[in-house]
Design a protein around this nucleic acid. Structure first.
Lengths: 132, 132
DNA sequence: CACCGACATTGACATTCTTCGATGCCCCTG
DNA sequence: CAGGGGCATCGAAGAATGTCAATGTCGGTG
């Protein structure tokens, strides 16, 4: 909303470069916000390392004490990042006894990858971009 | 470097949950920083919309004046976001005459998508996570 | 040659994010 | 039932980010 399209210029027969083609926008505003939120959860070196560490575990899961060491971060900070990843739907948290085990949600990363690879710039069959 | 793996705990025969398996980390620290930087360039609704707008143009390119309208942002802000995208290798800038034309770098988004989909949690053939 | 328009850059401000120290909660052990 | 350890939450400090107003630069126009 609040997209008012203030057309106070670039309007008419002028030889401006402005000839926007809003034919098939591959990404509406709402989808952009949603995808950006998921990407923002990924856009951090420590969180990427957390995901890789959890996935690299032979059991497919890891507890917090496994992750504070390699990351060289405090325990509250690791917990904070894990919460962000859980909230983004990338990790699951299962509390068994005293420890919390985190596991990678299979398919979540692929979903984001698909959105990045095909949801922003879909291939359209009428523009030879690379004449080479 | 500087990963000293301070083993002052989680070491030995204790029944701790901590049994990290640093066998094949799919993402080292340097790669994590690099991938996070590229994702950070994408993790913004306005920048995603910019990419979609540029790609949606029939000519495969667009100038700044085409983009300030739909985004409901000021021209300096749009220029700022475009610079971030160019700097991240996602867009190219070509100045023809007075106008600057931006085009999507073909393959860049796919590269990021591949890293997200296969560079963090690579499929390993000994854990039937999804029996479906 | 003077003017205007398109775009980039600068500086400043508000918001958000990252990190840490301190604390609270819960479960297990003695 | 008292004690300890693992983990989440709270509050705050510092840094990074998004946005805008103002200005500078460059190319085309009258």
């Amino acid at each position: 909303m609040t997209l008012s399209l203030t057309s106070d210029q670039a309007d008419g027969e002028t030889s401006s470069c402005c000839t926007p083609q809003p034919g098939t926008p591959a990404l509406d505003a709402e989808a952009a916000v949603e995808l950006a939120a998921r990407l923002k959860a990924l856009a951090d070196p420590n969180r990427l390392t957390l995901l890789a560490l959890v996935a690299a575990d032979a059991r497919g899961e890891a507890c917090v004490c496994d992750l504070t060491g390699p990351l060289d971060l405090g325990q509250p900070t690791v917990s904070h990042h894990l919460k962000i990843l859980v909230d983004a739907g990338l990790l699951t948290r299962e509390k068994r006894g005293v420890w919390s085990y985190y596991a990678v949600v299979d398919g979540a990363l692929e979903s984001i990858a698909h959105a990045v690879g095909h949801g922003i710039v879909p291939p359209h069959p009428n523009s030879p971009l690379e004449p080479a």
